[in-house]
Simulated assay, not measured.
Amino acid sequence: MPARTVSVPVRWGDLDAYGHVNNVAVLGLLEQARVQAFWDPGAPVLPTLAAGTPVQVVVADAHVTYRKAIPYVQAVDIAVTVERIGGASFVIGYEILLEGDVAVKATTTLVLVDVATWRPIRLDEDQRERLTALAPSPMP
């Protein structure tokens, strides 16, 4: 069971010449899901998401597996979980759901960095607890 499922609108411009969501647009859908899941204004999980902040969260790695073409729909549901937590990084798992089927499975590795030095910053205990709460099952 995913920790959080969010609805992300599909834009007309996300479609390619074949009439389905372009593979590059899928990464944009994942980004929107990540922002909704981790920076909810009522309970943000991570540091402020804004230009000029001293700590930023950046994508270090992304893997996407396309299982089914996504035609134009008003929105897709995206299940978001935290699959692994490291020292300064964590892995987010995504499933884009289409009519009850998984159309796309993906992961992104995110890293907290100090903007002044561009070096990784270790996750603090509070951040770890908030990330763990988004895990599909208890993490060791």
Rank of each mutant, 00 (worst) to 15 (best):
P71S: 11
I78N: 03
T109S: 06
R4Y: 01
W12K: 06
A88R: 02
T132D: 02
G28W: 06
P2A: 14
L97E: 00
A33Q: 07
K68R: 15
G52N: 04
I121H: 01
V8D: 09
K68G: 01
E31Y: 02
A75Q: 14
R4S: 06
P138W: 06
R128T: 09
A25D: 10
D126Y: 06
G93T: 02
V82Y: 02
R128F: 04
V82Q: 05
E129G: 12
D126R: 13
T5R: 12
T53W: 07
P9V: 08
T5P: 00
L29M: 13
I96N: 00
I85E: 05
A69P: 15
T108E: 06
V111N: 02
A51Q: 15
Y18D: 11
V91D: 00
A88G: 11
M139C: 09
V8S: 10
R11I: 04
V64K: 00
D40G: 09
Y94R: 02
V24N: 12
G42D: 14
T5Q: 11
A25P: 08
A50F: 08
L112A: 12
P54S: 13
T48M: 14
K105E: 15
E99R: 14
V55F: 05
E125N: 07
R128K: 13
P47H: 09
Q127F: 05
R119T: 09
R34V: 03
V57R: 04
W39L: 07
V73E: 05
V24I: 15
V111H: 01
A103K: 00
A51I: 14
P138E: 11
R4W: 01
I78P: 01
H20W: 13
G93W: 01
Y18S: 14
P120N: 07
L97Y: 01
W118P: 00
F90M: 03
E31I: 00
L123G: 01
L98Q: 05
T107L: 03
V21F: 08
A60R: 08
L30M: 07
V26K: 00
V10Q: 03
M139Q: 15
A133G: 11
D126P: 00
R119V: 03
A116K: 13
L30Y: 06
L112G: 01
Q36L: 15
P136S: 12
E99F: 11
Q74Y: 08
E129K: 13
L97P: 00
T107V: 10
R4G: 00
A50Y: 05
E31H: 14
N22K: 08
V10R: 00
S137V: 12
V111W: 01
V58C: 10
P140N: 11
S137K: 12
V59N: 03
V21I: 12
G19Y: 04
S89A: 13
T81G: 08
T117K: 10
V113W: 02
T132C: 05
V82I: 14
L134D: 04
I70N: 00
G87N: 13
P2T: 13
L49N: 05
D126A: 15
R4K: 14
V82P: 03
A33Y: 08
A51E: 15
L112P: 01
V10G: 02
L49E: 05
N23D: 10
V6Y: 09
A103E: 02
E125M: 04
T117Y: 09
L123C: 05
T65C: 13
T132V: 02
A79K: 02
V26S: 01
R130I: 08
T65A: 14
P54L: 09
V6K: 10
L112S: 09
A25F: 09
Q56D: 12
G52K: 04
G52Y: 02
G13C: 14
E99H: 14
